[in-house]
Design a protein around this nucleic acid. Sequence first.
DNA 1: ATGTTAATCTTGACAGTGTCAAATTATAAG
DNA 2: CTTATAATTTGACACTGTCAAGATTAACAT
Lengths: 204, 204
Amino acid sequence: MQQTTGRGNQTYHHGDLRAALLDAAAQRIESEGVEALSLRKLADDVGVSRSALYHHFRDKNALLNAVAARGFEQWIAVSKARANSVDMTPADRLAQFVHGYIHWSASNPQLYDLMFGRPIWKTGQADEQLKEIAFPAFHFMLNKITQWQQEGILAQSMPALRQTQVIWATLHGLARLIIDGVYADSEHIDDMCNCAVAMLLKQN
Amino acid sequence: MQQTTGRGNQTYHHGDLRAALLDAAAQRIESEGVEALSLRKLADDVGVSRSALYHHFRDKNALLNAVAARGFEQWIAVSKARANSVDMTPADRLAQFVHGYIHWSASNPQLYDLMFGRPIWKTGQADEQLKEIAFPAFHFMLNKITQWQQEGILAQSMPALRQTQVIWATLHGLARLIIDGVYADSEHIDDMCNCAVAMLLKQN
DNA sequence: ATGTTAATCTTGACAGTGTCAAATTATAAG
DNA sequence: CTTATAATTTGACACTGTCAAGATTAACAT
């Protein structure tokens, strides 16, 4: 199930087709978008025939789920790394979190779209494995925001869960508007982030 | 181009196919979602053959643009009607605006998804006509928020444009999370709206 | 080493899809 | 009534995701 034979795959069955498909899919998605991903072209990229894929993924949606799952792993890693930069005031950490979130989404627009987009989450198309990987991402945000509440830089009058949902909605909405280009220019990313931070911070 | 002959169309060419297609498309979209819309099934619904559509819309995207345009007209009408309820404090009006926005999106999820979704706005697939109809919607929000700034219930330290973008991002993000069911339950809509309002309002 | 089992990959096929060109029909204009 | 113009249909093409059946190869037990 892992690497069956370590190296030297030439005219193999294929070696590790699953990983190759994931790589190629992620690459094609990031360059052309989710909606332009064709399983047949993907098979061509990898040099394998069209329905070979079905021995590693139940269907196209399962493949997308797997790519999204990898995206979440990457997202969490980046976010945690950012959160561990110590010598900062809480307010600066919040600001950095906001800017980091938006910049990551703007740098990986297609992947962000896949991870947080409708096709996967709507109609229960997210499989259990993806949910298990995605949940820590939300939990991470919930923790951060609870912490900022306790540190006194966010209002404390509301349940942390609700506040997390609203703050995340702000970030998510901002990311979507920028990515989709809906009356929000990507030149003003930092301006918008600063404005968002100012609005989130407890005013006193 | 309008109604060629007023009434009594039976075994006509079809009468007014364009309108019939729009109606059928809107209906099918709202019941099954944008991604499930098939031009051929749509033609069946209307009782016409597959490529009749192409004499009224350049392609599928043009049809979707037209449906979205109708959605914006409806959205603007509803929003303006809500905004004209007089006897209220400014803060209550803001609250009502937020609740109204979210409830409308939750009541017309598929249409909202089409209007503000990626497939139309990304990659410049929104045609000029749609942009002309959509722009007043954004202008309407910009006006409202500028007004609330002047009335002193929103912070005045930021440019109205930026603040509009961020507030709209909050609403848009909330709508998306609820519609797509991404870790936001639709049972708690009002709780989340109240939380959002509390965060937006200038705290003093 | 050999025969068996199980995994992997390919080929052929099917039902869909959006879209175009050419042919057909009905409406409007002269 | 004839002509011109718009609306609609039929046939076709290239493409999509997915499945069933057959072929190929790896892993395993003896």
